[in-house]
Simulated assay, not measured.
Amino acid sequence: MREIVFDTETTGLDPQTGDRLVEIGCIEIVNRIPTGETFHGYFNPQRDMPMEAERVHGLSATFLSDKPLFSERAQELLDFLGDAPLVAHNAQFDFGFLNFELAACDLAAVSHERMIDTLAIARKRHPGAKHTLDALCSRYGVDRSHRVLHGALLDAELLAQVYVELLGGRQIGLGLAVDQGTEVERTGSVFAPKLGEHRPARPHFATDDEITRHKEFLKTISSPLWTQ
């Protein structure tokens, strides 16, 4: 199954009060395995960048001033998303900004029925624990040493690993199929054995010739341990 794990960076917390989306990063996974296909974009918000937001993601108004508007890459983004389920951490926030920007382009909103919220999954699986992305990376041993500031593509990459762990790891199916395709397509796991033609069991006894040659070989060994 194809899914998209994504993250956004913004100028603030509420698009209804003038905040804008300034970065989005998307990771494609199929049967919980990253395919290497990504979408990433910075966007000019056409407004200032509050210092509080810049301290989080490091994106200044100057850096973003020559970046494209969201509208210039909106269709490219939608083409990448396709009709796949969309995975995000605190997904209501990311969906809110994404759909606000789409509406500003006179494009249809992404249905919330496609939303998978890893924050809700984490709260259900680990009640009472910390559920930030950093905390979940620590819990599941996901290396985040290179995460100095928030970044949409980096955070999506980390979240993809956390999402897999939240759902029990990569091995999502043990059933073996007989049709052609990759191991992921057939079994849902890169660890599953490859299918092949049935071969009869090999004989597990030595022939008379092998026994004779073995005895001759033993005679060439001086002072063998088994005779002492």
Score class of each variant (00 low, 15 high):
Leu195Asp: 12
Gln75Asn: 07
Lys124Gln: 06
Ile29Ala: 14
Leu21Asn: 03
Arg73Trp: 02
Val110Asp: 13
Arg47Trp: 08
Arg32Phe: 13
Gly188His: 07
Pro15Arg: 00
Thr187Gly: 01
Phe191Met: 08
Val164Trp: 07
Thr11Ile: 03
Ala122Thr: 06
Gly151Tyr: 08
Ile29Arg: 14
Thr212Asp: 14
Ile29Phe: 12
Ala61Ser: 09
Val30Cys: 09
Val87Glu: 15
Glu101Ala: 11
Cys26Ile: 14
Pro85Glu: 12
Ile221Phe: 03
Asn31Ser: 03
Asp106Ala: 13
Leu13Gln: 13
Gly25Ile: 12
Leu136Asp: 13
Glu23Met: 08
Arg123Thr: 00
Pro203Cys: 12
Val110His: 12
Leu86Asn: 06
Arg186His: 00
Val5Glu: 15
Phe70Met: 08
Glu37Lys: 04
Gly25Glu: 13
Asn99Tyr: 14
Thr11Ser: 06
Thr207Glu: 15
Leu102Trp: 15
Leu133Gln: 13
Leu21Gly: 00
Ala104Leu: 08
Ser71Ala: 15
Asp79Trp: 05
Gly58Pro: 09
Ala206Trp: 15
His126Phe: 15
Glu28Ile: 01
His57Leu: 07
His89Val: 05
Asp66Lys: 10
Gln180Leu: 09
Arg2Gly: 05
Lys130Ala: 11
Arg32Pro: 03
Glu23Trp: 11
Thr212Met: 10
Leu225Met: 00
Thr118Glu: 04
Arg186Gln: 04
Glu165Met: 09
Asp66Gln: 11
Arg202Glu: 14
Lys67Phe: 06
Lys124Leu: 09
His146Cys: 10
Gly169Val: 12
Gly96Cys: 06
Asp66Met: 10
Ala74Tyr: 00
Phe97Ser: 11
Trp226Ile: 02
Tyr163Gly: 10
Ser71Gln: 12
Leu102Asn: 15
Pro85Tyr: 08
Leu218Gln: 08
Arg32Gln: 14
Ile24Met: 05
Phe70Pro: 09
